[in-house]
């Protein structure tokens, strides 16, 4: 458990690290209480870069073809768009999933302990046509990829 806790503190990133780290170290907080520190500011951010910065500590990412996003070209249902993110990178500790055109772009942050593969799937709501963005933190560096998903009224097919 000890190692696990330390990892978590590390994962939580820059600013909060010291104080939370202290709290955990001092036995004041259980791991589940650490978990409760839901990243409010990142999830409530309206701009993509603010959301990324809030989620992963830095708004600047380098595009990478090592990340593959599996999402439909045209969504079958904008309310349920399946997205899978896979990274062919070592040392991945976090994956953030964003929907560019949503009012609050950040959808999810996945924290991956060592041994967990950078390969996660979930489903997101998309109000309109736009990009799904994946940001992957690997060995402390941020990489990103995008995939356009069209949201359509549908109907009238041949």
């Amino acid at each position: 458990m000890k190692l696990d806790q330390k990892r978590r503190v590390f994962l939580k990133g820059s600013v909060a690290a010291t104080s939370v780290g202290f709290a955990v170290g001092a036995g004041l907080l259980t791991p589940s209480a650490v978990l409760a520190a839901w990243n409010k500011s990142a999830f409530e951010a309206k701009a993509v870069d603010k959301a990324i910065g809030g989620a992963l500590g830095n708004p600047t990412t380098s595009p990478s073809d090592k990340i593959s996003i599996k999402a439909p070209d045209i969504a079958e249902n904008g309310a349920v768009v399946p997205v899978s993110i896979k990274a062919d990178l070592d040392g991945v500790t976090e994956i953030a999933l964003l929907v560019e055109k949503n009012a609050n772009p950040l959808s999810a942050i996945f924290h991956l302990p060592k041994g967990t593969l950078p390969d996660v799937s979930t489903r997101v709501k998309m109000g309109k046509t736009g990009d799904v963005i994946a940001v992957v933190k690997a060995n402390g560096k941020l990489y990103s990829a995008r995939k356009s998903v069209k949201v359509t009224i549908g109907g009238c097919g041949g």
Partner: peptide, 25 residues
């Protein structure tokens, strides 16, 4: 008993959420 994933989600995750992931071992 050992954590293999920890997710923070926003409200834009779809109704009746789905999560899939993989770990070694």
């Amino acid at each position: 008993g050992k954590e293999v994933i920890n997710c923070e989600w926003g409200a834009s995750i779809s109704k009746n959420p789905y999560l899939a992931f993989k770990f070694k071992g």
